[in-house]
Design a protein around this nucleic acid. Sequence first.
DNA 1: GTGAAAGCGCTAACAC
DNA 2: GTGTTAGCGCTTTCAC
Lengths: 343, 343
Amino acid sequence: MATTDPAARRTRRRSGAVTLHDVAKLAGVAPITASRAVNTPDRVSEAVLAKVRAAIARTGYVPNRLAGGLASTRSRLVAAVVPTISGPVFLETVHSLTEALAEHGYQLMLGQAGYDGTREDALLEAIIGRRPDGIVLTGIMRSADGKRRLLASGIPVVETWDLTANPIDMLVGFSHAEVGRAVARFLHSKGRRRFAALAGSDERARRRLAAFEAAARTLGLSPVSTAIVPAPTTLKSGRAALADLLAADPSLDAVFCSSDLLALGVLTEARVCGVKVPEQLAVVGFGDQEFAADLDPALTTVHIDGGSIGRQAAQFICERAEGRTVEPRIVDIGFSIVERAST
Amino acid sequence: MATTDPAARRTRRRSGAVTLHDVAKLAGVAPITASRAVNTPDRVSEAVLAKVRAAIARTGYVPNRLAGGLASTRSRLVAAVVPTISGPVFLETVHSLTEALAEHGYQLMLGQAGYDGTREDALLEAIIGRRPDGIVLTGIMRSADGKRRLLASGIPVVETWDLTANPIDMLVGFSHAEVGRAVARFLHSKGRRRFAALAGSDERARRRLAAFEAAARTLGLSPVSTAIVPAPTTLKSGRAALADLLAADPSLDAVFCSSDLLALGVLTEARVCGVKVPEQLAVVGFGDQEFAADLDPALTTVHIDGGSIGRQAAQFICERAEGRTVEPRIVDIGFSIVERAST
DNA sequence: GTGAAAGCGCTAACAC
DNA sequence: GTGTTAGCGCTTTCAC
C-alpha cells in the first residue's frame, strides 16, 4: 500500500559498506567533521579526533575514494601506459613510479597499449574516463588524435623514455638517436670496423639503429648489416639473427643489439658457433638489465636509469597536483655506455 | 548583495569537462536517455541513438567512471597485487589478466606489496577504498588481518599461484610442495644422487625447497645442500651460490633453482669453473621463462602457465560481477617439468 | 573549531 | 522507449 507515497520509495541501493555518515553518527558529530578528522586532522579538536578515530576503528571504515574523487575532482589515481608489461625495459620505471606515487597517496593504474598501438584508442578512453590526476606514457604519444584527446582532457601528462621538441605536456627521457651515435663512436674507438645492428621492431629501437647506421657512414665505415626482429625481443631471435648476420657477412666484428636479451642471444649463439667474444666479435646491448654485468663475458651495454625516470615522472605529477608549476618541464636524463668484457 | 540568498551560492566547482547532461541537452533528450544510449544502445530507438552519438562526437564526451561507479556500485576496476613488478615471474599473469579484463571493459590497478609484506596494510586500504569489482592476489594472503579486511570488504578476491585449503574466496594455482617433490623424483630418475637446492627467500620458493628436501630424504639420498638468496633472485646470486655450494661439496650432481634467472647464473658459473652441464651437474630452473629454451645448454625447468592463471582469474571476476556463481572456485592448474639439455 | 546545505556526474527505481 | 526523481558517499561553500 501507499505505493505512490514518496517516502515508500526510499528503498534504494547502498553498497552495504560503512560510510562516513555511519562513523559520524557513532562519534556524535556531523559528517563533515568526521571528514575533516580523516583528511585534515589538525583542523579538528583533540576530543573530536579521538572520538572519530575510535568510531573508525570500531567500524572498520574505509573511505570511498570514488565518492571522494567525484566530489573533489581529485581521484588520487595515476595512469601509466606501457607497450606491454612483459617487456623488461620499463619495469624499473613502473616499479619506481608505483613506489614514489604510493608515498604521496596515489595509486597506479596500468594500461597496455600493445606494440602496434591497436587498442590505444579504447585504452585512452578507459583512462581518461577515470579522471586520473596524471598520465605517464612510456614513450611519446605518436598519434595526433591521441595527443588531441589527452590535451583536451586537461589531465597532466608525462611522456617518458624519449625526447621530442613538442611534448604534450611534461617530458623525461633521453635521445635515442644520440644513443645510436654514441655506440657507433664507441665501437669505432675500440678499433671495430665492420658493424652490424640488431633491433626489435619498435619505433625507438629503429631510431637508435638509424642513427647508428648514419654515424657509421660518417665515420667512413662500410654499410651496417642490419636485422629487424619482432618486438618484444627474445634470446631466441637474438641467436637466430646473429646466425643470419654471420652467414651474410662473416667479417663482422661488432654487433649493437636493441636489448640485453638480444645481446644474450648473440653471446650464446657466438659461443655455440665458436666465435670468440670479444676477440672476434664485440657485442653491445641496451638496457643494462641486472643480468648483464654477470654474464660471461660480462656485457657492455647502454645504461638508462629507468628508476630515475619513474621517480621524476611521479614528482612532476605530484607537483602539478599541488598546484605548483613545474619548471623545467623537459628533462633529459641521458644515458651511459657501461664498458665490460664483451667489447 | 543577496549574500544569504540560497540561489546566489550556486557558484560551484564543476570539473570543466563535458558531462552527460551537456550531451543530452545537445541531443534534445533526457540525461537518462543519453545514458542508455551509451550503456545499453539496444534499449533506445535508432533516432535517439543517432542524435546522442552525434552529440558525443561533437563534444568529445568521455563518461566519468568515477560518477558512474559511485551511482552503480560497479567501478569496472580490478586490483592486482604483486610482490614487486620487477620480478619476472608474475609478468605473464599480469599481462594476460590486463588483456582479458580489458576485453570486458575492466581496467587493472596495480599494487606492489613488497616481498617483506610491509605496506601491505596501506596498500589494502588504498585498494579497498577504490571499491574495485575484484582483487587478484599473486600468492595467497597470509596475514590474518589482511584476510579479515578483504573478507569484510565484500569484494571478490582471487588468490593465485598457490594452493590452500581455506582460500578467502576464489583460487587458481598449483602446489609448490608438489613441484619440489616432482623435481626430486625427476632428478632421481635421471640417476642423480647428490642434490643441492638454491632458493630465493620468498615463502613459496622455500616451500618448494622444503618438499624437495623431504622427497630426497624419502628417496634415501643424503641431505640436500641448500642455499637461500635474497628475493628477487638474480643471475649474480645464482653464480655466487653455486660457487659456495661446490666449495662445500664438490660431489654435487644436481641443482634445483627457484627461478630460471638463478639457473642461468648456475649455468654461467659452471661454465666458468669448467663444470660440465649436464655431464657433471644437472640444472633445473623454475618458471620456464622465454629464454630458458634457447640457452646453451637449454634449461630443464618447471613450466607454469602464468597466462592461464591470469585469464582464469579474470574470468572468475567477470562471472562474479555478472552475478553468476562460479563453481568450482578452486582450480589447480598444475605444472610440468620441461626436460631439456641441462639434465 | 563545527555545522547545514548543496551538489560532483552519473544511474537505479519507478512511472507513463 | 522515454522521462522524472532521488540519491551513490563524499567534499565544497558559506555561515556561525
